[in-house]
Design a protein around this nucleic acid. Structure first.
Lengths: 220, 220
DNA sequence: TCATTATTCAAGTATTTACTTGAATAATTG
DNA sequence: CAATTATTCAAGTAAATACTTGAATAATGA
């Protein structure tokens, strides 16, 4: 009886540590980062994270074994995606604790998200303003990422064609831009360009998933 | 410019993966589990997690390097503790995702927290009732754990002397017992004993930290 | 059916890991 | 000052890890 419980306890900690270990390699974290914005084939992932295809495939298998990722066949290629949105949450929590504990990460964060590009409003207030139509929320990621999953009320903004995008915006409303999260710079340039053209523009550090789940239990 | 950002990105992912790796060993997770309930000396920890002193010390150093744990000297011995409550949050998040992703962990959970011992009330409602004085919240961990950090309104219940403890309780109010969280059984026996004696008693799966931070952003 | 394509597998290597044992350190007490 | 105590360090070992290269597989399209 007590022995069986002890055995179970061992299993518990070994399962939990398996999951943690799955997150314990830079390459795999980058995979999760990519997959939290889009599903993707091995070759594509491999290019995005800058590792060989074989190596990427092996990392993916480790993630799959830990249950963080799943595959679906589509013809000759395979599409990998996160098994669950909660995977993003653990990843965000890891970022959060990193930001608290590691000075390296603190300085990295202000490099990626320069304070002068950020709004002083709380995220709640931003979301509220967007909901009321008093502010414009733009998603500057690739179109396919936007189509897979974006934040409520967000519109897609073509970051390589700012001039073309202007017609989507009102100069009377502040514009809030988001991309792939804290360690992504896509939104920075757009904000700078918009400010040059007289818009009141800010960059959000949050990614689509965080903006979507606001109001429910989590934000990071 | 772009190169420097890339270098920073590499550092970001390697720092984050260092933190995840620090959680990637059963022994270290158990250390964190212990430390989320009490600060502790190496020898004590070593006994609790069932590893040699030298090995425990080495694990602690890894945790320290990752910034999850800190030491303070007290005379001839050293006291290790978590650097930050947020460490508990990551650990809880890991548990949460484990519960979602791993069947092993699901069955373990019902072994540790048998459904028949649990209340049907939501945790919010339990906390509300406790706050209003309509229910009794008991902490059945060791006294020193209780003294270091317990939940609001909780009283310490001596789990080895249930009979003695009875005078702390009212038979008219439901009793909610908590211990060290999901993978701890201390509260089970107390609940069983209390029920035998005619009390309406339930076991909570949450640990002190979770009961304390309810109302703010998190619960798991 | 054969070539192409995307992915996985197998084998090899260098590095890191978790652990052991036993000695070294450093604060405390007799 | 010597003995005790709690902890860390150093060295060694077996296993696991992240990567490489090149071959194997299996679906698709000519």
């Amino acid at each position: 009886m007590k022995d069986s419980l002890n055995a179970t306890k061992e299993k518990v900690y070994s399962s939990l540590s398996d999951i943690a270990s799955a997150l314990g390699a830079p390459a795999r974290l980058r995979i999760i980062q990519v997959l939290s914005n889009r599903s993707s084939a091995v070759e594509d992932l491999s290019a995005r994270i800058g590792e060989s295809v074989a190596n990427t495939s092996q990392h993916l298998q480790k993630l799959k074994k830990a249950g963080l990722v799943r595959v679906s066949r589509s013809g000759v290629s395979r599409t990998y995606s996160l098994t669950n949105k909660n995977v993003i949450d653990v990843f965000l929590d890891l970022q959060k604790i990193g930001a608290i504990l590691s000075p390296d990460l603190q300085s990295a964060e202000s490099e990626f998200c320069p304070p002068e590009l950020q709004s002083k409003l709380s995220l709640q207030d931003v979301v509220k303003a967007v909901r009321k139509g008093e502010a414009t929320l733009i998603d500057v990621r690739d179109l396919d990422e936007f189509e897979t999953n974006t934040a409520p009320h967000a519109i897609h903004f073509p970051r390589d064609e700012v001039t073309k995008g202007l017609k989507l915006l009102s100069k009377k409303k502040p514009v809030f831009a988001f991309c792939r999260g804290r360690y992504c710079i896509l939104a920075n340039d757009v904000v700078v360009q918009l400010r040059k053209r007289g818009y009141e523009a800010y960059r959000l550090r949050e990614m689509a998933h965080q903006l979507s789940t606001l109001g429910s239990s989590k934000e990071a």
